[in-house]
Design a protein around this nucleic acid. Structure first.
Lengths: 248, 248
DNA sequence: GTATTATTGTAACAAAATGAGACAATAGGA
DNA sequence: TCCTATTGTCTCATTTTGTTACAATAATAC
Protein backbone atom coordinates (compact mmCIF):
# COMPACT_ATOMS: atom_id res chain seq x y z
CA UNK A 1 0.00 0.00 0.00
CA UNK A 2 1.16 3.51 -0.62
CA UNK A 3 -0.23 6.45 1.28
CA UNK A 4 -1.06 9.58 -0.64
CA UNK A 5 -1.33 13.28 0.07
CA UNK A 6 0.61 12.85 3.25
CA UNK A 7 2.15 16.25 2.94
CA UNK A 8 -1.29 17.79 2.85
CA UNK A 9 -2.08 15.97 6.05
CA UNK A 10 -3.21 12.42 5.52
CA UNK A 11 -5.24 12.02 8.58
CA UNK A 12 -6.41 8.97 10.30
CA UNK A 13 -10.03 9.91 10.62
CA UNK A 14 -10.49 10.25 6.91
CA UNK A 15 -9.76 6.59 6.14
CA UNK A 16 -10.86 3.12 7.07
CA UNK A 17 -8.22 1.88 9.47
CA UNK A 18 -6.02 -1.15 8.96
CA UNK A 19 -7.17 -1.45 5.40
CA UNK A 20 -5.40 -0.66 2.15
CA UNK A 21 -5.49 -1.70 -1.44
CA UNK A 22 -2.72 -2.60 -3.84
CA UNK A 23 -2.89 -2.62 -7.59
CA UNK A 24 -1.00 -4.70 -10.11
CA UNK A 25 -1.14 -2.62 -13.26
CA UNK A 26 -0.38 -4.70 -16.32
CA UNK A 27 0.76 -3.26 -19.61
CA UNK A 28 2.04 -4.88 -22.79
CA UNK A 29 4.77 -3.21 -24.82
CA UNK A 30 4.39 -5.42 -27.85
CA UNK A 31 6.86 -7.95 -26.55
CA UNK A 32 6.73 -8.29 -22.78
CA UNK A 33 4.14 -8.15 -20.05
CA UNK A 34 5.05 -5.36 -17.63
CA UNK A 35 3.76 -3.92 -14.39
CA UNK A 36 4.12 -0.54 -12.70
CA UNK A 37 6.37 -0.40 -9.63
CA UNK A 38 6.97 2.55 -7.31
CA UNK A 39 10.32 3.35 -5.71
CA UNK A 40 10.26 5.30 -2.46
CA UNK A 41 12.56 8.28 -1.94
CA UNK A 42 16.06 7.32 -0.82
CA UNK A 43 15.05 3.99 0.60
CA UNK A 44 15.71 1.49 -2.16
CA UNK A 45 12.24 0.14 -1.36
CA UNK A 46 10.02 -0.93 -4.23
CA UNK A 47 6.30 -1.44 -3.96
CA UNK A 48 3.05 -1.79 -5.84
CA UNK A 49 0.96 1.34 -6.22
CA UNK A 50 -1.76 1.36 -3.61
CA UNK A 51 -3.66 3.49 -1.19
CA UNK A 52 -6.35 3.76 1.43
CA UNK A 53 -10.12 3.77 1.34
CA UNK A 54 -11.97 6.87 2.46
CA UNK A 55 -14.75 6.38 4.95
CA UNK A 56 -17.29 7.71 2.51
CA UNK A 57 -16.23 6.10 -0.72
CA UNK A 58 -16.69 2.59 -2.03
CA UNK A 59 -13.75 0.25 -2.28
CA UNK A 60 -13.94 0.20 -6.07
CA UNK A 61 -14.02 3.97 -6.22
CA UNK A 62 -10.97 4.21 -4.01
CA UNK A 63 -9.00 1.98 -6.35
CA UNK A 64 -10.21 3.84 -9.42
CA UNK A 65 -9.22 7.12 -7.82
CA UNK A 66 -5.71 5.84 -7.10
CA UNK A 67 -5.35 4.42 -10.58
CA UNK A 68 -6.41 7.65 -12.17
CA UNK A 69 -3.75 9.47 -10.14
CA UNK A 70 -1.02 7.06 -11.18
CA UNK A 71 -1.89 6.72 -14.85
CA UNK A 72 -4.06 9.70 -15.75
CA UNK A 73 -6.50 7.23 -17.27
CA UNK A 74 -10.19 6.92 -16.62
CA UNK A 75 -12.26 3.86 -17.43
CA UNK A 76 -9.55 1.34 -16.79
CA UNK A 77 -10.25 -2.37 -16.86
CA UNK A 78 -10.10 -3.40 -13.23
CA UNK A 79 -10.57 -6.67 -11.44
CA UNK A 80 -10.39 -7.41 -7.75
CA UNK A 81 -8.68 -10.73 -7.18
CA UNK A 82 -7.68 -11.33 -3.56
CA UNK A 83 -7.50 -9.87 -0.08
CA UNK A 84 -4.28 -10.42 1.78
CA UNK A 85 -4.83 -10.65 5.50
CA UNK A 86 -1.83 -12.38 7.02
CA UNK A 87 -0.48 -11.20 10.35
CA UNK A 88 3.10 -10.88 9.19
CA UNK A 89 2.51 -9.06 5.95
CA UNK A 90 2.87 -5.52 7.34
CA UNK A 91 6.32 -4.09 7.86
CA UNK A 92 6.41 -1.27 10.39
CA UNK A 93 10.15 -0.78 10.03
CA UNK A 94 10.02 -0.20 6.28
CA UNK A 95 7.00 2.06 6.69
CA UNK A 96 8.82 4.11 9.31
CA UNK A 97 11.80 4.47 7.02
CA UNK A 98 9.61 5.71 4.19
CA UNK A 99 7.98 8.29 6.44
CA UNK A 100 11.35 9.45 7.78
CA UNK A 101 12.94 9.78 4.37
CA UNK A 102 9.99 11.88 3.31
CA UNK A 103 10.50 14.14 6.29
CA UNK A 104 7.18 13.28 7.88
CA UNK A 105 6.39 13.22 11.57
CA UNK A 106 6.13 9.65 12.73
CA UNK A 107 3.78 10.55 15.54
CA UNK A 108 1.21 11.94 13.13
CA UNK A 109 1.33 8.81 11.08
CA UNK A 110 1.71 6.11 13.66
CA UNK A 111 -1.44 4.43 12.40
CA UNK A 112 0.42 3.61 9.22
CA UNK A 113 2.77 1.38 11.15
CA UNK A 114 -0.10 -0.76 12.30
CA UNK A 115 -1.21 -3.97 10.72
CA UNK A 116 -2.95 -3.67 7.35
CA UNK A 117 -5.15 -5.99 5.37
CA UNK A 118 -4.93 -5.23 1.71
CA UNK A 119 -7.34 -5.82 -1.11
CA UNK A 120 -5.52 -6.50 -4.35
CA UNK A 121 -6.74 -5.50 -7.82
CA UNK A 122 -5.23 -5.93 -11.20
CA UNK A 123 -5.65 -3.47 -14.02
CA UNK A 124 -5.08 -3.91 -17.74
CA UNK A 125 -4.10 -0.84 -19.65
CA UNK A 126 -2.96 0.21 -23.05
CA UNK A 127 0.75 0.68 -22.51
CA UNK A 128 1.07 3.38 -25.15
CA UNK A 129 -1.46 5.69 -23.59
CA UNK A 130 0.20 6.07 -20.22
CA UNK A 131 2.75 8.40 -18.67
CA UNK A 132 3.00 7.03 -15.13
CA UNK A 133 3.07 9.53 -12.25
CA UNK A 134 4.72 8.69 -8.89
CA UNK A 135 2.79 9.34 -5.68
CA UNK A 136 3.73 11.77 -2.95
CA UNK A 137 6.07 9.39 -1.14
CA UNK A 138 7.82 8.03 -4.22
CA UNK A 139 10.45 9.42 -6.49
CA UNK A 140 9.74 7.17 -9.42
CA UNK A 141 7.26 4.83 -10.97
CA UNK A 142 8.40 2.57 -13.76
CA UNK A 143 7.45 -0.33 -15.93
CA UNK A 144 9.17 -3.60 -15.08
CA UNK A 145 8.96 -6.77 -17.10
CA UNK A 146 7.11 -9.41 -15.16
CA UNK A 147 10.18 -11.62 -14.98
CA UNK A 148 12.62 -8.85 -14.12
CA UNK A 149 11.07 -7.31 -11.06
CA UNK A 150 13.20 -5.67 -8.37
CA UNK A 151 12.82 -7.07 -4.83
CA UNK A 152 9.49 -5.81 -3.55
CA UNK A 153 8.36 -4.73 -0.09
CA UNK A 154 6.31 -6.87 2.22
CA UNK A 155 4.28 -9.51 0.41
CA UNK A 156 4.06 -7.63 -2.86
CA UNK A 157 5.95 -10.33 -4.72
CA UNK A 158 3.26 -12.76 -3.68
CA UNK A 159 0.55 -10.34 -4.74
CA UNK A 160 2.06 -10.13 -8.21
CA UNK A 161 2.31 -13.90 -8.44
CA UNK A 162 -1.34 -14.31 -7.49
CA UNK A 163 -2.37 -11.60 -9.95
CA UNK A 164 -0.61 -13.40 -12.76
CA UNK A 165 -2.21 -16.68 -11.82
CA UNK A 166 -5.68 -15.15 -11.85
CA UNK A 167 -4.98 -13.33 -15.10
CA UNK A 168 -4.02 -16.66 -16.63
CA UNK A 169 -7.28 -18.22 -15.52
CA UNK A 170 -9.25 -15.32 -16.91
CA UNK A 171 -7.44 -15.21 -20.21
CA UNK A 172 -10.03 -17.16 -22.18
CA UNK A 173 -13.08 -15.99 -20.31
CA UNK A 174 -12.45 -12.29 -20.22
CA UNK A 175 -10.95 -11.39 -23.59
CA UNK A 176 -7.90 -10.02 -21.87
CA UNK A 177 -6.25 -9.03 -25.14
CA UNK A 178 -8.87 -6.39 -25.72
CA UNK A 179 -7.60 -4.34 -22.83
CA UNK A 180 -3.86 -4.75 -23.29
CA UNK A 181 -3.65 -4.00 -27.00
CA UNK A 182 -4.41 -0.91 -29.07
CA UNK A 183 -7.77 -1.09 -30.81
CA UNK A 184 -6.19 -2.49 -33.98
CA UNK A 185 -3.53 -5.15 -33.81
CA UNK A 186 -2.04 -8.00 -35.77
CA UNK A 187 -2.65 -11.65 -35.08
CA UNK A 188 0.97 -11.97 -34.05
CA UNK A 189 0.59 -9.29 -31.37
CA UNK A 190 -2.50 -10.95 -30.02
CA UNK A 191 -0.74 -14.29 -29.94
CA UNK A 192 2.16 -12.70 -28.11
CA UNK A 193 -0.19 -11.42 -25.41
CA UNK A 194 -1.49 -14.92 -24.92
CA UNK A 195 2.02 -16.32 -24.81
CA UNK A 196 3.42 -13.95 -22.22
CA UNK A 197 0.44 -14.45 -19.97
CA UNK A 198 0.42 -18.22 -20.29
CA UNK A 199 4.20 -18.38 -20.17
CA UNK A 200 4.36 -20.80 -23.08
CA UNK A 201 4.65 -20.68 -26.85
CA UNK A 202 1.57 -21.34 -28.90
CA UNK A 203 1.27 -22.86 -32.34
CA UNK A 204 0.71 -20.10 -34.84
CA UNK A 205 -1.71 -21.91 -37.12
CA UNK A 206 -3.81 -23.37 -34.34
CA UNK A 207 -4.00 -20.06 -32.53
CA UNK A 208 -5.07 -18.20 -35.64
CA UNK A 209 -7.69 -20.76 -36.53
CA UNK A 210 -9.07 -20.84 -33.03
CA UNK A 211 -9.29 -17.07 -32.57
CA UNK A 212 -10.86 -16.53 -35.98
CA UNK A 213 -13.24 -19.38 -35.27
CA UNK A 214 -14.45 -17.64 -32.14
CA UNK A 215 -15.96 -14.98 -34.35
CA UNK A 216 -15.01 -12.11 -32.09
CA UNK A 217 -12.63 -10.31 -34.43
CA UNK A 218 -13.15 -7.89 -37.29
CA UNK A 219 -10.55 -7.81 -40.03
CA UNK A 220 -9.32 -4.47 -41.34
CA UNK A 221 -6.70 -3.19 -43.77
CA UNK A 222 -3.21 -4.64 -43.97
CA UNK A 223 -0.39 -3.25 -41.92
CA UNK A 224 2.70 -2.48 -44.03
CA UNK A 225 5.61 -2.62 -41.65
CA UNK A 226 8.35 -1.98 -44.20
CA UNK A 227 9.58 -5.53 -43.73
CA UNK A 228 10.51 -7.91 -46.49
CA UNK A 229 7.55 -10.23 -46.22
CA UNK A 230 3.81 -10.46 -46.59
CA UNK A 231 1.97 -7.79 -44.62
CA UNK A 232 -0.36 -8.99 -41.87
CA UNK A 233 -3.96 -7.88 -41.56
CA UNK A 234 -5.02 -5.69 -38.70
CA UNK A 235 -7.82 -6.96 -36.48
CA UNK A 236 -9.99 -5.48 -33.79
CA UNK A 237 -12.41 -6.97 -31.31
CA UNK A 238 -15.96 -6.77 -32.53
CA UNK A 239 -17.87 -4.02 -30.84
CA UNK A 240 -20.42 -6.56 -29.67
CA UNK A 241 -17.74 -7.73 -27.24
CA UNK A 242 -17.56 -4.34 -25.61
CA UNK A 243 -19.27 -5.77 -22.57
CA UNK A 244 -15.97 -7.41 -21.80
CA UNK A 245 -14.44 -4.05 -21.09
CA UNK A 246 -15.30 -4.33 -17.43
CA UNK A 247 -14.45 -1.17 -15.61
CA UNK A 248 -16.22 -1.83 -12.34
CA UNK B 1 -21.56 -10.53 9.11
CA UNK B 2 -22.62 -11.86 12.44
CA UNK B 3 -21.01 -10.75 15.67
CA UNK B 4 -20.16 -13.34 18.24
CA UNK B 5 -19.72 -13.51 21.97
CA UNK B 6 -21.53 -10.25 22.35
CA UNK B 7 -22.97 -11.24 25.65
CA UNK B 8 -19.52 -11.81 27.01
CA UNK B 9 -18.62 -8.33 25.86
CA UNK B 10 -17.65 -8.07 22.23
CA UNK B 11 -15.58 -5.02 22.42
CA UNK B 12 -14.43 -2.69 19.81
CA UNK B 13 -10.76 -2.71 20.67
CA UNK B 14 -10.45 -6.43 20.13
CA UNK B 15 -11.33 -6.33 16.43
CA UNK B 16 -10.32 -4.65 13.23
CA UNK B 17 -12.91 -1.94 12.66
CA UNK B 18 -15.20 -1.67 9.68
CA UNK B 19 -14.21 -5.12 8.55
CA UNK B 20 -16.09 -8.38 8.65
CA UNK B 21 -16.16 -11.66 6.81
CA UNK B 22 -19.06 -13.70 5.50
CA UNK B 23 -19.06 -17.35 4.61
CA UNK B 24 -21.11 -19.27 2.09
CA UNK B 25 -21.03 -22.81 3.41
CA UNK B 26 -21.97 -25.29 0.72
CA UNK B 27 -23.20 -28.78 1.39
CA UNK B 28 -24.65 -31.47 -0.84
CA UNK B 29 -27.41 -33.72 0.42
CA UNK B 30 -27.22 -36.17 -2.44
CA UNK B 31 -29.72 -34.27 -4.51
CA UNK B 32 -29.44 -30.52 -3.98
CA UNK B 33 -26.74 -27.98 -3.31
CA UNK B 34 -27.46 -26.24 -0.02
CA UNK B 35 -26.02 -23.46 2.07
CA UNK B 36 -26.19 -22.58 5.74
CA UNK B 37 -28.31 -19.55 6.67
CA UNK B 38 -28.71 -17.94 10.09
CA UNK B 39 -31.97 -16.47 11.38
CA UNK B 40 -31.70 -13.75 14.01
CA UNK B 41 -33.87 -13.86 17.11
CA UNK B 42 -37.35 -12.43 16.58
CA UNK B 43 -36.42 -10.32 13.63
CA UNK B 44 -37.25 -12.41 10.60
CA UNK B 45 -33.81 -11.44 9.32
CA UNK B 46 -31.75 -14.05 7.54
CA UNK B 47 -28.03 -13.79 6.95
CA UNK B 48 -24.89 -15.65 6.06
CA UNK B 49 -22.71 -16.80 8.94
CA UNK B 50 -19.89 -14.37 9.45
CA UNK B 51 -17.83 -12.54 12.00
CA UNK B 52 -15.04 -10.15 12.75
CA UNK B 53 -11.27 -10.35 12.57
CA UNK B 54 -9.28 -10.05 15.78
CA UNK B 55 -6.41 -7.60 15.75
CA UNK B 56 -3.92 -10.35 16.39
CA UNK B 57 -5.17 -13.09 14.13
CA UNK B 58 -4.87 -13.56 10.41
CA UNK B 59 -7.90 -13.20 8.19
CA UNK B 60 -7.86 -16.88 7.27
CA UNK B 61 -7.65 -17.89 10.91
CA UNK B 62 -10.62 -15.69 11.77
CA UNK B 63 -12.75 -17.39 9.14
CA UNK B 64 -11.60 -20.84 10.20
CA UNK B 65 -12.43 -20.02 13.80
CA UNK B 66 -15.92 -18.91 12.85
CA UNK B 67 -16.49 -21.95 10.70
CA UNK B 68 -15.41 -24.28 13.43
CA UNK B 69 -17.91 -22.64 15.78
CA UNK B 70 -20.75 -23.00 13.29
CA UNK B 71 -20.04 -26.52 12.11
CA UNK B 72 -17.82 -28.14 14.69
CA UNK B 73 -15.54 -29.15 11.86
CA UNK B 74 -11.81 -28.55 11.56
CA UNK B 75 -9.88 -28.70 8.32
CA UNK B 76 -12.65 -27.42 6.13
CA UNK B 77 -12.07 -26.67 2.48
CA UNK B 78 -12.12 -22.89 2.29
CA UNK B 79 -11.65 -20.42 -0.49
CA UNK B 80 -11.72 -16.65 -0.36
CA UNK B 81 -13.50 -15.27 -3.39
CA UNK B 82 -14.36 -11.60 -3.14
CA UNK B 83 -14.36 -8.55 -0.91
CA UNK B 84 -17.52 -6.49 -0.89
CA UNK B 85 -16.82 -2.83 -0.29
CA UNK B 86 -19.79 -0.85 -1.52
CA UNK B 87 -20.99 2.14 0.47
CA UNK B 88 -24.59 1.05 0.64
CA UNK B 89 -24.08 -2.53 1.65
CA UNK B 90 -24.27 -1.97 5.42
CA UNK B 91 -27.64 -1.71 7.07
CA UNK B 92 -27.56 0.10 10.41
CA UNK B 93 -31.29 -0.26 10.96
CA UNK B 94 -31.27 -4.02 10.65
CA UNK B 95 -28.19 -4.24 12.83
CA UNK B 96 -29.82 -2.11 15.51
CA UNK B 97 -32.88 -4.32 15.43
CA UNK B 98 -30.76 -7.40 15.90
CA UNK B 99 -28.97 -5.88 18.86
CA UNK B 100 -32.23 -4.74 20.44
CA UNK B 101 -33.96 -8.06 20.04
CA UNK B 102 -31.00 -9.67 21.72
CA UNK B 103 -31.30 -7.26 24.62
CA UNK B 104 -27.94 -5.64 24.02
CA UNK B 105 -27.01 -2.07 24.78
CA UNK B 106 -26.84 -0.13 21.54
CA UNK B 107 -24.32 2.31 22.97
CA UNK B 108 -21.82 -0.42 23.68
CA UNK B 109 -22.13 -1.69 20.15
CA UNK B 110 -22.49 1.46 18.17
CA UNK B 111 -19.45 0.51 16.10
CA UNK B 112 -21.47 -2.32 14.65
CA UNK B 113 -23.81 0.13 13.01
CA UNK B 114 -20.97 1.66 11.08
CA UNK B 115 -20.02 0.81 7.52
CA UNK B 116 -18.42 -2.56 6.99
CA UNK B 117 -16.37 -4.04 4.20
CA UNK B 118 -16.71 -7.77 4.11
CA UNK B 119 -14.44 -10.46 2.81
CA UNK B 120 -16.39 -13.39 1.49
CA UNK B 121 -15.30 -17.03 1.62
CA UNK B 122 -16.96 -20.18 0.49
CA UNK B 123 -16.58 -23.49 2.24
CA UNK B 124 -17.31 -26.99 0.98
CA UNK B 125 -18.29 -29.53 3.57
CA UNK B 126 -19.53 -33.03 3.86
CA UNK B 127 -23.19 -32.51 4.58
CA UNK B 128 -23.52 -35.67 6.62
CA UNK B 129 -20.88 -34.78 9.14
CA UNK B 130 -22.38 -31.54 10.33
CA UNK B 131 -24.77 -30.48 13.04
CA UNK B 132 -24.93 -26.72 12.52
CA UNK B 133 -24.82 -24.48 15.59
CA UNK B 134 -26.33 -20.95 15.61
CA UNK B 135 -24.25 -18.04 16.88
CA UNK B 136 -25.02 -15.92 19.94
CA UNK B 137 -27.35 -13.55 18.11
CA UNK B 138 -29.26 -16.16 16.16
CA UNK B 139 -31.95 -18.60 17.10
CA UNK B 140 -31.42 -20.96 14.22
CA UNK B 141 -29.09 -22.02 11.49
CA UNK B 142 -30.41 -24.19 8.70
CA UNK B 143 -29.64 -25.66 5.35
CA UNK B 144 -31.42 -24.04 2.43
CA UNK B 145 -31.38 -25.28 -1.13
CA UNK B 146 -29.54 -22.84 -3.32
CA UNK B 147 -32.67 -22.05 -5.31
CA UNK B 148 -34.98 -21.79 -2.33
CA UNK B 149 -33.27 -19.21 -0.18
CA UNK B 150 -35.24 -16.89 2.10
CA UNK B 151 -34.75 -13.17 1.52
CA UNK B 152 -31.35 -12.29 2.92
CA UNK B 153 -30.06 -9.20 4.71
CA UNK B 154 -27.97 -6.56 3.08
CA UNK B 155 -26.09 -7.77 0.01
CA UNK B 156 -25.95 -11.39 1.09
CA UNK B 157 -27.99 -12.51 -1.89
CA UNK B 158 -25.34 -11.03 -4.14
CA UNK B 159 -22.60 -12.70 -2.12
CA UNK B 160 -24.24 -16.08 -2.64
CA UNK B 161 -24.61 -15.43 -6.36
CA UNK B 162 -20.94 -14.54 -6.67
CA UNK B 163 -19.93 -17.57 -4.64
CA UNK B 164 -21.86 -19.85 -6.95
CA UNK B 165 -20.31 -18.25 -9.99
CA UNK B 166 -16.80 -18.73 -8.65
CA UNK B 167 -17.57 -22.27 -7.58
CA UNK B 168 -18.70 -23.00 -11.13
CA UNK B 169 -15.44 -21.66 -12.53
CA UNK B 170 -13.44 -23.72 -10.09
CA UNK B 171 -15.36 -26.91 -10.65
CA UNK B 172 -12.91 -28.47 -13.09
CA UNK B 173 -9.75 -27.01 -11.64
CA UNK B 174 -10.30 -27.74 -8.00
CA UNK B 175 -11.89 -31.18 -7.82
CA UNK B 176 -14.83 -29.73 -5.98
CA UNK B 177 -16.59 -33.07 -5.71
CA UNK B 178 -13.93 -34.33 -3.36
CA UNK B 179 -15.04 -31.93 -0.67
CA UNK B 180 -18.79 -32.17 -1.05
CA UNK B 181 -19.11 -35.95 -1.14
CA UNK B 182 -18.36 -38.68 1.34
CA UNK B 183 -15.08 -40.44 0.67
CA UNK B 184 -16.81 -43.16 -1.34
CA UNK B 185 -19.53 -42.28 -3.82
CA UNK B 186 -21.17 -43.53 -6.97
CA UNK B 187 -20.63 -42.06 -10.39
CA UNK B 188 -24.20 -40.86 -10.35
CA UNK B 189 -23.66 -38.89 -7.15
CA UNK B 190 -20.56 -37.28 -8.57
CA UNK B 191 -22.41 -36.38 -11.72
CA UNK B 192 -25.21 -34.90 -9.67
CA UNK B 193 -22.72 -32.63 -7.90
CA UNK B 194 -21.49 -31.37 -11.24
CA UNK B 195 -25.02 -30.85 -12.45
CA UNK B 196 -26.27 -28.83 -9.51
CA UNK B 197 -23.22 -26.60 -9.60
CA UNK B 198 -23.33 -26.06 -13.33
CA UNK B 199 -27.07 -25.81 -13.32
CA UNK B 200 -27.43 -28.08 -16.34
CA UNK B 201 -27.85 -31.76 -17.06
CA UNK B 202 -24.86 -33.72 -18.27
CA UNK B 203 -24.73 -36.72 -20.54
CA UNK B 204 -24.19 -39.80 -18.43
CA UNK B 205 -21.86 -41.70 -20.75
CA UNK B 206 -19.72 -38.74 -21.65
CA UNK B 207 -19.39 -37.72 -18.02
CA UNK B 208 -18.39 -41.19 -16.94
CA UNK B 209 -15.85 -41.59 -19.70
CA UNK B 210 -14.35 -38.19 -19.07
CA UNK B 211 -14.03 -38.60 -15.31
CA UNK B 212 -12.56 -42.08 -15.59
CA UNK B 213 -10.23 -40.82 -18.29
CA UNK B 214 -8.85 -38.21 -15.93
CA UNK B 215 -7.38 -40.99 -13.90
CA UNK B 216 -8.17 -39.42 -10.56
CA UNK B 217 -10.58 -42.02 -9.27
CA UNK B 218 -10.10 -45.36 -7.59
CA UNK B 219 -12.79 -47.96 -8.03
CA UNK B 220 -13.99 -49.96 -5.05
CA UNK B 221 -16.65 -52.53 -4.25
CA UNK B 222 -20.16 -52.31 -5.58
CA UNK B 223 -22.90 -50.57 -3.68
CA UNK B 224 -26.04 -52.69 -3.31
CA UNK B 225 -28.89 -50.28 -2.84
CA UNK B 226 -31.68 -52.82 -2.72
CA UNK B 227 -32.96 -51.58 -6.04
CA UNK B 228 -34.05 -53.74 -8.93
CA UNK B 229 -31.12 -53.03 -11.21
CA UNK B 230 -27.41 -53.40 -11.65
CA UNK B 231 -25.46 -52.11 -8.65
CA UNK B 232 -23.09 -49.21 -9.26
CA UNK B 233 -19.45 -49.25 -8.24
CA UNK B 234 -18.23 -46.99 -5.49
CA UNK B 235 -15.39 -44.62 -6.31
CA UNK B 236 -13.06 -42.42 -4.33
CA UNK B 237 -10.61 -39.73 -5.32
CA UNK B 238 -7.08 -41.08 -5.52
CA UNK B 239 -5.05 -40.12 -2.52
CA UNK B 240 -2.53 -38.47 -4.81
CA UNK B 241 -5.14 -35.76 -5.32
CA UNK B 242 -5.17 -34.96 -1.64
CA UNK B 243 -3.38 -31.71 -2.43
CA UNK B 244 -6.73 -30.50 -3.70
CA UNK B 245 -8.11 -30.55 -0.21
CA UNK B 246 -7.12 -26.96 0.27
CA UNK B 247 -7.79 -25.89 3.81
CA UNK B 248 -5.87 -22.58 3.83
C1' DG C 1 -36.93 -70.81 -10.97
C1' DT C 2 -37.82 -67.42 -14.71
C1' DA C 3 -39.22 -63.29 -16.78
C1' DT C 4 -39.29 -58.27 -15.89
C1' DT C 5 -37.45 -53.72 -14.87
C1' DA C 6 -34.41 -49.97 -14.11
C1' DT C 7 -29.85 -48.74 -14.11
C1' DT C 8 -24.99 -49.31 -14.96
C1' DG C 9 -20.60 -50.00 -17.53
C1' DT C 10 -18.66 -49.99 -21.88
C1' DA C 11 -18.25 -50.30 -26.79
C1' DA C 12 -18.96 -48.32 -31.36
C1' DC C 13 -19.41 -44.82 -34.57
C1' DA C 14 -20.07 -39.79 -35.76
C1' DA C 15 -18.88 -35.11 -35.20
C1' DA C 16 -15.96 -31.53 -33.57
C1' DA C 17 -11.68 -29.64 -31.95
C1' DT C 18 -6.77 -29.63 -32.01
C1' DG C 19 -1.88 -30.86 -33.48
C1' DA C 20 1.45 -30.80 -37.06
C1' DG C 21 3.01 -29.86 -41.64
C1' DA C 22 2.85 -28.08 -46.08
C1' DC C 23 2.30 -24.50 -49.31
C1' DA C 24 1.04 -20.53 -51.92
C1' DA C 25 0.95 -15.41 -51.50
C1' DT C 26 3.54 -11.37 -50.94
C1' DA C 27 6.27 -6.87 -49.22
C1' DG C 28 10.45 -5.32 -49.35
C1' DG C 29 15.59 -6.08 -49.87
C1' DA C 30 19.51 -7.77 -52.63
C1' DT D 1 14.22 -10.39 -61.16
C1' DC D 2 15.23 -13.31 -57.54
C1' DC D 3 15.44 -14.01 -52.58
C1' DT D 4 13.74 -13.97 -47.76
C1' DA D 5 10.81 -13.90 -43.90
C1' DT D 6 6.21 -13.97 -42.58
C1' DT D 7 1.32 -14.55 -43.23
C1' DG D 8 -3.09 -16.84 -44.36
C1' DT D 9 -5.00 -21.09 -45.42
C1' DC D 10 -5.43 -25.95 -46.45
C1' DT D 11 -4.82 -30.88 -45.49
C1' DC D 12 -4.43 -34.89 -42.90
C1' DA D 13 -3.60 -37.18 -38.43
C1' DT D 14 -4.83 -37.33 -33.67
C1' DT D 15 -7.59 -36.43 -29.76
C1' DT D 16 -11.72 -35.27 -27.60
C1' DT D 17 -16.60 -35.16 -27.26
C1' DG D 18 -21.56 -36.29 -28.70
C1' DT D 19 -24.76 -39.95 -29.51
C1' DT D 20 -26.54 -44.37 -29.74
C1' DA D 21 -26.56 -48.98 -28.75
C1' DC D 22 -26.20 -52.97 -26.01
C1' DA D 23 -24.88 -56.39 -22.71
C1' DA D 24 -24.62 -57.11 -17.60
C1' DT D 25 -27.10 -57.39 -13.44
C1' DA D 26 -29.69 -56.67 -8.69
C1' DA D 27 -34.01 -56.91 -7.03
C1' DT D 28 -38.98 -57.81 -7.89
C1' DA D 29 -43.06 -60.03 -9.72
C1' DC D 30 -44.78 -64.17 -11.20
Amino acid sequence: MSPKKISKGLNREEFIENLSYDSVIFGFNGEQLKILILEYHNTGLFALPGGFVRRNESLDDAVKRGLKERTGLDHIYLEQFHTFGGLKRSDARAMRRILEKNGLDIKDHEWMLDRFLSIAYYALINYEKVVPIPDALSDSINWYAIDELPPLMMDHRQIVATALEVLRNNLEKKLVGMNLLPSKFTMKQLQRVYEVILGEDLRRTTFQRRLLGMNILDRHEKLFQGKAHKAPYLYSFKSSNTDNIKQL
